[in-house]
Structures are given as structure tokens and as C-alpha cells.
């Protein structure tokens, strides 16, 4: 349809030019239905008036955002002071997700490196093995994790039996349990992109560096890691983002004593509060945060690519 302009182009052929719009249609339709529509609905709902016990009244209101940022006391009649409750919940979730991401990176990078350096025929098998636990539902895996970590669970039994501990470690219902749960839930999302990057890495670069007397640590830090950085960044995003919104691990492993972003939002729709606009507002704030984070990553990537 839009002819010309591509005449002097490089390797791109324009065989599909006349039907390009039609070919893109399914992608646009699914993006609209699955992404744009729900997010717009959320945006609209966050500016509506809440209906008692769930639902919305179609009247413009800022009270959801006011509730998020303004502390007006137990009875809601004091002047606005900064509301730390929800900022604290967000901060805690970010911290948890960040810790889980670092843990995944620490275990995931060596794992991916190991797999990528196996002979080609073995690699598929290793990747296959990494994905096996993920054939099982997330809920089941999280509950199993709880059984492993329990005070009378196998982990403590083993440590006590070996004489490493004299008292069982209380891990369940702590932040550590949540981080372990998130780490375990999303580890393959870290391993697979890094594996893909390391597999493409040209190992003769490492050999060349070694020939020039670069110590191993320097080779890893200055040659391997920069080369596979896109994989690392992708892995970190893929672990961090779902960890941020998760509520299974915090509820089951953390004891649900403190709200996380995910459980706070869930409570607004499923719980007693029944405050849909507030749930939508909290989701919008989360979405904005993640978006800003991804933009920063993307810009850094672009800069690194150009430099």
C-alpha cells in the first residue's frame, strides 16, 4: 500500500508490502484485546468512585490515589500527611523481588555457563532437565518448597542429622522463605536467556585473552560478562517483574503477615475491603514503576550498543 521509500534498501525485500497491514492485523487485534483494553479499563477504574462491597460508581474521583499517598488517620478526618503504609509495602516487595533476582543470577549464571560449555549434544538434555520441574503447577511447587523448609522438614532433618545444627532453622514464615520461593519459581527465566547469550559467545575471545596473559577473573569480568550482558539483563527483568507482583510465595511461605504488592491488590478485589478503584490505582502505580524501570534498562542497552 505505502509504496516507494524502500527502493534503495539493503537486504530487505518487499514481497509482502501490499498485504503488510493485513498480516499485522492479528498481532494488533490481540494486543488491543489482551493488553490495551484491560490496562485502559484499569486506568479508568482507578479514577472512579468505589462502591461499597466491591464495584464502582461511574463518578470521577481521585480518592483512590488520595488513599495511596495521603494518611488521614484511622477515622479519615485528619489533614493529609504522607502515607507510608503503601510505600512501605511497595518498597518491601521491590526489595524481596530484588533479592530473589540476585539469588537467581548468582545461581543461574554459572548454571547457564555450564550448560552452554557442554558439548552440543548434551546441551539440549541439560535445558530439558532445567525445565522439568516447571511442568508442575506453581502452587504445588510453592507448597512443596514449604514442606522442604519446615521446622520438621527434610532440610532441617538433614542439617540436624549431620550435626551441623543443634536447633532447627525456622525458615518458613520469614522473608528468606519468600525469597527462596521466588528464586525457585523463576530460576529458569534467568538460566534460559543467559544460556542463549553464552551459547552465541565466541570462546576464541577468551582464548585470545588468556594468550595475552589475562587472568581468569579479568576474562570473565571484562570480556565474557559484557558480551552476554543482554542475556543477563533479560533474565533479571524476567525474574524481577513477576516476583514483584507475586502473591503465592508471600502468602504460603511468608505467612501472609505483611501485604506485598500482589496481595494488597488481591485484597481489594477478593477480600473484605472490596475497594476496586484503590486496587486499580495500586496496579497503575505498579505498572508505571515497572515501565520506568524497563525504559531505564532499554536506554542503557541502547547506549551500550552505540558506544
Amino acid at each position: 500500500m505505502a509504496g516507494g521509500g524502500t527502493a534503495g534498501g539493503g537486504p530487505r525485500t518487499d514481497t509482502y508490502a501490499p498485504v503488510r497491514l493485513w498480516l499485522l492485523l492479528p498481532a494488533w487485534v490481540s494486543l488491543t484485546i489482551l493488553v490495551l483494553a484491560p490496562v485502559s479499563m484499569m486506568l479508568v477504574y482507578s479514577f472512579l468512585t468505589k462502591e461499597f462491597r466491591g464495584g464502582v460508581i461511574w463518578e470521577f474521583s481521585l480518592s483512590a490515589y488520595d488513599q495511596f499517598f495521603c494518611n488521614r488517620g484511622l477515622f479519615g478526618d485528619e489533614p493529609c500527611s504522607i502515607e507510608w503504609t503503601y510505600l512501605l509495602i511497595f518498597w518491601r516487595s521491590i526489595w524481596q523481588a530484588g533479592a530473589a533476582t540476585l539469588l537467581s543470577l548468582a545461581i543461574g549464571f554459572p548454571t547457564a555457563y555450564f550448560i552452554a560449555t557442554r558439548p552440543a549434544r548434551q546441551r539440549a538434555l541439560w535445558v530439558f532437565l532445567i525445565t522439568i520441574p516447571y511442568w508442575v503447577n506453581l502452587l504445588i511447587r510453592t507448597v512443596s518448597m514449604k514442606f522442604l523448609l519446615r521446622d520438621q522438614g527434610p532440610l532441617n532433618d538433614a542439617l540436624l542429622g549431620l550435626g551441623i545444627l543443634s536447633e532447627p532453622l525456622s525458615i518458613v514464615n520469614t522473608n528468606l522463605a519468600v525469597q527462596l520461593g521466588l528464586f525457585y519459581s523463576y530460576l529458569p527465566f534467568m538460566v534460559l536467556p543467559i544460556y542463549a547469550a553464552v551459547e552465541r559467545y565466541n570462546f576464541s575471545l577468551s582464548e585470545a585473552a588468556a594468550d595475552l596473559y589475562a587472568p581468569r577473573w579479568v576474562i570473565l569480568r571484562r570480556i565474557v560478562i559484557p558480551a552476554v550482558k543482554p542475556g543477563i539483563v533479560a533474565g533479571c527483568i524476567l525474574v524481577f517483574v513477576p516476583s514483584l507482583g507475586s502473591f503465592l510465595a508471600p502468602d504460603l511461605l511468608g505467612g501472609a503477615k505483611t501485604f506485598m504488592i500482589g496481595s494488597l491488590i488481591e485484597e481489594q478485589f477478593k477480600g473484605n475491603a472490596g475497594n476496586w478503584p484503590f486496587g486499580a490505582a495500586a496496579s497503575m502505580i505498579l505498572l508505571t514503576m515497572v515501565l520506568i524501570l524497563l525504559l531505564i534498562f532499554a536506554r542503557q542497552q541502547a547506549r551500550a550498543g552505540n558506544g
Binding site: G76, T85, L88, I89, F259, N272, A273
Partner: peptide, 17 residues
Amino acid sequence: DQATQEVYDQIWTNLKK
């Protein structure tokens, strides 16, 4: 009623924050 329930909702949020 709604006004009373909102205070109880706040107490519950305080409990779980």
C-alpha cells in the same frame, strides 16, 4: 454500615502492613 466498615478496613490494613 459503610462508614464503620471503612474504619475496620483501615484497622485490618494497619494490621497487615
